[in-house]
Design a protein around this nucleic acid. Structure first.
Lengths: 222, 222
DNA sequence: GTACGTTTCAAACAATCGTTTCCATCGAGG
DNA sequence: CCTCGATGGAAACGATTGTTTGAAACGTAC
């Protein structure tokens, strides 16, 4: 139908502009004019700008969670003892993250959006993502827990976010970094190349020795 | 003078609001009313909103670069051979980052601002920071190069940005993460505690084994 | 062909934005 | 006392924002 055409044209244009400039810096007029669609179409089809932003994310995250659940199902089936090696877990997640947007040639956009979701205040976005897609992440962390029984729970929690930061930060700022790297080392870096470089770093970070015991608790500016 | 009072009151208010909501989401009216100064004061003292944003950063980065240069001078004096151990370099940087905003009890704000500087498009900001403060970073990376001669240049470049992502991502999203961690593990985390946890992870990431040789060059969606 | 629900369109809405203007106020120097 | 440059303050500027409106255009079923 014609609706689908307008809706997808809005989404296709919006995700690119959001990724390039951020949410607040992208007006509905910029989106609709570039998408060759009437201004009112956004509010008609999505209801509001907030809802459009969430729809942009849903188009990536819905297939991602579905595939990732499937991938974890397969992994659990191959390891009936319930303990999946850490490398396989990471590998599975990486593959899923790469697969989903690859079909629309928009891995870069997906990564930038993930970066924005974390950095931009946009309270509603973080809440929406947390409520809508938190369950997959919970399942994943539980599997990581079984894979790394020697790590204290709190330590594992923080280290998972450390490497999450590494990946999102790197892949979402990829363009700028790639330009610098290319200028300084003349080497062209593909996303797959970057993932190859990331793997040993992530594994080493998760397997790092435990920190020294904390000193006496000192108050800290909050 | 009265000028100084107005200027610092604007800066104090602006940096907090920017850190909480981002730049585009913080209006000059919100800043000036909360700071109890006239709306026109911002344009009078700073010239524009862009200039105010840069001034907020300069108030942190100017003392930071000065101290960091001094710390590196001291390190080079203690190692006349020109090779400073990696741990000392990292330690020195961490200490400087913690010192500067500690004097104004605003480490959290500083970290959030750093995170915003990377994520928000705000082209002018990245350019400003790069041009104004890029030299310290260049000096630091050169010292890291001498400290890790076994690493290929490109590999070191990427790993430095990996750990930079870890640190900025973690410390700028600290509030949200701290809430989750506190809820899940009942443990209160101070910034110093987090730095203690970060140290072994960062060292392990930089010292990770080299990735396997790349496969045949495959084109990748850019 | 006519009626109906859906979608598109141009126009206007009220609100907010950054910036500018103009005048009052102040304090120091002549 | 008067002057003058610097600062504070109220009001308005024009531009842009997200959203709403009401009518035109559309395809479909009777």
């Amino acid at each position: 139908m014609a609706q689908t055409d307008t809706v997808t044209r809005i989404l296709d244009t919006a995700e690119v502009l959001f990724a390039e400039r951020g949410f607040a810096e992208t007006s509905l007029r910029t989106i609709t004019s570039k998408a060759r669609v009437n201004l009112a179409a956004v509010n008609y089809h999505f209801g509001s700008k907030k809802a459009l932003i969430q729809a942009v994310f849903a188009r990536y995250l819905d297939p991602f969670t579905e595939r990732f659940h499937g991938a974890l199902d397969a992994l659990e089936a191959r390891h009936p003892d319930g303990t999946i090696p850490l490398e396989e877990l990471l590998e599975s997640m990486a593959r899923t993250v790469l697969e989903v947007p690859a079909e629309r040639h928009s891995l870069k956009v997906f990564m930038k959006l993930l970066g924005l979701a974390y950095s931009q205040a946009q309270g509603h976005l973080r809440r929406y993502i947390q409520e809508e897609y938190g369950s997959v992440f919970t399942r994943f962390t539980e599997l990581v827990r079984r894979a790394t029984p020697e790590l204290p729970d709190a330590e594992r929690f923080w280290r998972l976010h450390f490497v999450l930061g590494t990946v999102i930060f790197t892949l979402s700022g990829l363009d700028a970094l790639r330009d610098i790297a290319e200028k300084d080392y003349g080497e062209h870096v593909s996303v797959r190349d970057l993932v190859r470089r990331l793997r040993p770093v992530v594994v080493a970070a998760l397997n790092a020795p435990l920190p020294e015991a904390p000193m006496a608790n000192r108050a800290e500016a909050s």
